[in-house]
């Protein structure tokens, strides 16, 4: 019995190594081309909803839902310090993508307002205003009335700017998650959703980092800024 136990002990690692070898030999070649082509499609679009320099070494796409509490936390605790430092310093090019989840009643409406603001070059201020005041208009907030996004946007813009945004929002003021025929900005949201499906992105917030043409796996959840900074620094220090 002892001899057979010894034999088993010896055979186990040998057979495992053999199996691993067979698995590695039969494994497919890396698909760098398809990842690169997806990255190219993504970075070529949505310049109005992007922050920073397009020539920055790191490109980061963030799929957000304006009503999702985790997205609010991620924006306030991580994206804000990143925008103020790494994006401002030209290290990161931040691309916003809309992914309004049907479970959030007012997220599509919020995305419409932000896209309308983006059309006149006011994406950053309106995005910041909506996240800063998420509790004032979202269904999870303690303040009333829910879903009243208009005053938040109005407060973030000059009267002339708001008038332009308001004009773009004609036919858009609805809580519906369906693409509205008369809404000029819905196509932009649909485009972002389609880009998300390519990845695929199913949760928010999701961020995708592209460095030197290589797309890294998506990160999901409200990651803290110190860890995100550590990750970005390590990427930048790579040769």
């Amino acid at each position: 019995m002892r001899r057979s136990t010894k034999t088993m002990r010896l055979l186990t690692p040998v057979s495992a190594a053999l199996l691993l070898g067979i698995g590695l030999a039969a494994s497919p070649v890396p698909k760098e081309t398809s990842e690169k082509s997806v990255a190219a499609q993504i970075t070529d679009l949505s310049a109005q909803k992007s922050l920073g320099s397009p020539s920055a070494p790191i490109k980061m796409e963030v799929f957000d839902d304006y009503e999702c509490p985790n997205c609010g936390m991620f924006y306030e605790q991580t994206l804000k310090p990143m925008i103020d430092s790494y994006v401002a310093e030209g290290k990161v090019y931040l691309i916003h993508r809309d992914l309004p989840l049907p479970m959030h009643q007012y997220s599509r409406q919020a995305a419409r307002w932000v896209n309308a603001a983006a059309r006149i070059g006011k994406f950053e201020v309106v995005e910041r205003a909506l996240f800063d005041n998420q509790m004032a208009w979202s269904e999870y907030g303690s303040e009333n009335p829910k879903g009243n996004i208009r005053p938040i946007v109005k407060g973030a813009l000059t009267p002339a700017e708001f008038e332009r945004v308001d004009r773009l929002m004609e036919g858009c003021e609805s809580d519906s998650h369906d693409e509205l025929k008369g809404c000029a900005v819905d196509a932009a949201i649909q485009h972002d959703i389609a880009v998300g499906q390519l990845v695929p992105v199913t949760e928010t917030p999701t961020f995708i980092v592209i460095y030197r043409g290589q797309q890294y796996p998506p990160g999901v959840g409200a990651i803290s800024w110190p860890l995100m900074k550590q990750f970005l620094d390590q990427l930048l220090s790579q040769r």
């Binding site: 698995g23 590695l24 494994s27 497919p28 070649v29 890396p30 698909k31 890294y216 796996p217 990160g219 990651i223 860890l227 995100m228 550590q230 990750f231 390590q234 990427l235 220090s237 790579q238 040769r239």
Partner: peptide
């Protein structure tokens, strides 16, 4: 790509990056 020979080419910097990603 997982389960390829390429995925066994671990360097100190790739290791650091992977573990920081796991930390996130």
């Amino acid at each position: 790509t997982p389960w390829t020979l390429h995925s066994l080419e671990v360097t100190p910097s790739s290791l650091n990056l992977s573990m920081t990603f796991f930390a996130m």
